[in-house]
Design a protein around this nucleic acid. Structure first.
Lengths: 184, 184
DNA sequence: CAATAATTTCTGAAAATACAGAACCTGCTG
DNA sequence: CAGCAGGTTCTGTATTTTCAGAAATTATTG
């Protein structure tokens, strides 16, 4: 289990980026290596290839599993656990986005909902609540939309994205249509 | 400059979330307070309201400015600088997304592009490059799409999002149309 | 061109996080 | 049930990040 310079470069880069994506350097490296490996890897492989302590690898695998990013593979006659990336690259992206939403957006939404139920008790709070309402609506709208998109079959989603600037036009077009028939 | 419990709760929450959004606790608190305040705030206001050292406030303001999230306000006859949130909540969201893309996605894309120009030097790299290609394509597609969306006028974007599950249908519909006329 | 108000940069302490390595489980195998 | 492979949890150290407060810098006004 030794990495070529190319693979190494990507693995390290992903480690650095990892922190931005919500997990730490070593977890990022571990995941990158697993994704790039055709064959399932076990904890020892990771520990050796990345020079990471065995205990740390165990924690990292736990973390990646909590993101639902790993698929466990059992090799008959071998008592080690092996791992590959769960699903396609698309699946991976979707999982990460879902998880980040759960961690970053949902708690805020919930707090906002609670706060907005309370009566503003002075001038200052009237304005503040207006802003909170705006934030709430934005998050809710985006969240709902994201749900729609992420539950679409990937193919369809891809088509949609490729539509690109066409989308603006489609939108105008459907606008016109809905003038006549509100239920496209 | 004293916060009501409601406002305080949101400010602190946003501080905690802040770290997930790419800046630290105090920067998050500062921004939340600025957004919720009807009137522009100066460094001292922030320092006092949040119990943050004056120097730290200065750093934080720099950080927020690097995200293009602040609008500077000058009050005639007062030499202090005052700040409000730059633009609407939508503008804020767009700025944050753009900036995160710049910081999180672009460097990876650039590395991938470079790597994919090289010839795979063995079996292992052939597979790894396939995966990298997939990641590259996904990031590029999403990035391009995000560009489209984020440069759309907010109203249009809002309409699009509200379209919700309708979108799947629109898609099928345009599919049929393009069979006859490829340039919608 | 002082005097001083406002801001920025620097410095080191404190807090949080990441991590190696040891100690500890758990369950298989002979 | 001893021995051991594999995995997890714990403990202390190293690293990184955050931040207050001091020092330095820049602007503003009489």
């Amino acid at each position: 289990m030794t990495m070529t310079p190319q693979i190494e470069a990507f693995v390290y880069h992903f480690g650095e980026m990892g922190s931005r994506w919500g997990f730490n350097r070593t977890v990022g490296q571990m995941y990158a290596l697993i994704v790039l490996s055709e064959h399932p890897l076990c904890a020892n492989d990771l520990s050796e290839a990345l020079n990471i302590s065995r205990g740390n690898v165990s924690m990292g695998l736990k973390e990646l599993q909590s993101w639902r990013l790993l698929q466990e593979k059992r090799v008959p006659g071998d008592r080690k656990e092996y791992f590959t990336a769960a699903g396609s690259i698309w699946d991976m992206a979707i999982r990460v986005l879902e998880e980040r939403r759960r961690r970053e957006v949902d708690p805020t939404l919930s707090l906002l909902r609670d706060t907005l139920l309370e009566k503003p008790s002075n001038e200052q709070e009237v304005y503040a609540q207006e802003k909170m309402q705006e934030i709430h609506d934005l998050l809710e709208l985006c969240g709902g939309w994201a749900d729609e998109l992420l539950t679409m079959p990937p193919n369809k989603l891809k088509t949609l994205m490729k539509l690109g600037s066409g989308m603006g036009k489609v939108l105008e077009f459907t606008d016109k249509l809905t003038l006549r028939s509100p239920d496209i």
